[in-house]
Design a protein around this nucleic acid. Structure first.
Lengths: 204, 204
DNA sequence: TTTATATTGACCGATTCGGTTTACAGGAAT
DNA sequence: ATTCCTGTAAACCGAATCGGTCAATATAAA
């Protein structure tokens, strides 16, 4: 792997982005190393020279993308925000900016969620399990759950909001940059609605 | 092909939907006939028995899906609506209901738009060209273009609206049935906005 | 039981797969 | 000039899979 990490950064990016695009588009099994080589503008032999096997490349990409968004999160995450909905708004903001800066990595990470090939399923499951607990800690740690009305399950609210933001983020690449703000506004309006109806009156 | 069209309808559907799903997911080249057979619950030999070749199957699916949405359109299209925005609202309604009734066909038709394999590119180009003029006739034939303010290009407005509805329709499968109405409302609000700002005052 | 048909598993040559090996181009050191 | 690296790709490998065929079997009508 040092063979690869020693490369000039620009070349690394080209290879990584080529591989990410190929895998995102067709999944693990249906993506051949030749595809990746063509998409990265190098020969097939170089892919093996750099990464050893197709699987090692795939696993490397998973780690690479996760590191990328992890650093994005650590850079912008503000643990001092303890309000449930403010926290959601902040994490959504991080997601959107990550989508703007590293679209290929994000779409690759969503693609691994559906990957079924037994050759990599294990590795994905592990990384996804780890990510799950991390994500829920981002959403819940230090949050004032007592602001909710009785009978309201924050976990359920989280699921709801999650699906909603997913839809919006999927839509993002289809729109020009100008629309992003409008989408954001709509998102915030939705959050406001939920807060108004799910919080106890004294916390509005 | 009569081998296939003579089959009980339910079996035909299963095969068609399996093939549509496979092709939509992985494109022409990356979809093997074995994939389709598994997805349709029959043996690979039967696919060839029914359709002759992989390409014939693909071309048949294109025709099948186009017939499907064409009949949907003819069933619900109202040529007497001459207002530009009313016409758009109507066609969007048709699209959405088609998406609800035949999601696999719709997603297959969007996938052929990006298909690049030379074995089928020609056929797709032909059918797409024919569709283009048809679609523009749906949008423009008999429309009162003089309602627009001077300097407003209806073609441009069409492009704008088209992109907007695309985004919403892509989002559709991600949401529960209850959300569809909300999305529709938002769509109509957008149309209203455009009409208010692009029509001459005497037509508001 | 015979006959016609629906269906498939096994098979074909060709291609492509993941992965290896060899050969070559060019710079550094001798 | 020659040796010796090193980064790179073309050619190659056996195995798997491709699109497609066919002989054989299961099924049902006669």
């Amino acid at each position: 792997m040092e063979k690869f990490t020693g490369l000039p950064e620009e070349k690394q990016s080209k290879i990584i982005n080529g591989a990410l695009a190929s895998f995102s588009l067709n999944g693990y099994k249906k993506t051949s190393v030749s595809d990746i080589a063509v998409s990265a503008g190098i020969s097939k032999a170089m892919v093996f020279h750099y990464f050893g096997t197709k699987k090692e490349l795939y696993v490397y990409l998973i780690g690479y993308c996760i590191n990328l968004i992890m650093s994005q999160i650590q850079e912008r995450f503000d643990r001092s925000i303890t309000d449930f909905f403010d926290r959601i708004t902040m994490t959504a903001g991080i997601k959107i900016s990550a989508m703007e800066k590293h679209p290929a990595s994000l779409s690759f990470l969503s693609s691994i969620y559906f990957e079924q090939d037994p050759e990599v399923k294990q590795e994905i499951k592990a990384v996804l399990a780890a990510g799950e607990s991390f994500r829920s800690s981002l959403a819940y740690d230090g949050i004032d759950l007592h602001k909710f009305k009785e009978g309201v399950d924050p976990q359920l609210v989280m699921k709801l909001v999650q699906r909603y933001t997913e839809g919006h983020i999927n839509e993002l690449p289809n729109h020009a940059a100008l629309d992003v703000e409008a989408i954001n506004n709509e998102f915030q309006a939705c959050i406001r609605l939920l807060r108004n109806n799910l919080y106890k009156e004294e916390y509005l």
